[in-house]
Amino acid sequence: MTETTPKPLTEKEAEALLDAASRALALPVPEKCRAGTVTNIVAASTAAAFVMGFPLGDTDEPAPVFRA
């Protein structure tokens, strides 16, 4: 992975993402769920960093509607 690809988020960074996205989506996160949600954002960021470390070309189109 090069330095231009994302790194997994720290807990503090995940908390900042949670707070901003919570406002953007009008999705309040109950206090009881906050720590678990942060943990899962960190886990997702680890997976996303792994995915984004792969070099894709301009012709690699997304497949939101997949035809096998």
């Binding site: 949670l18 769920c33 678990g36 949600t37 943990t39 899962n40 954002i41 995915v51």
Partner: peptide, 13 residues
């Protein structure tokens, strides 16, 4: 908590 987290993630991911 997994659903809540999933809602928060960037479109770029």
């Amino acid at each position: 908590d997994r659903f809540l987290a999933g809602a928060m993630l960037p479109a770029g991911w």
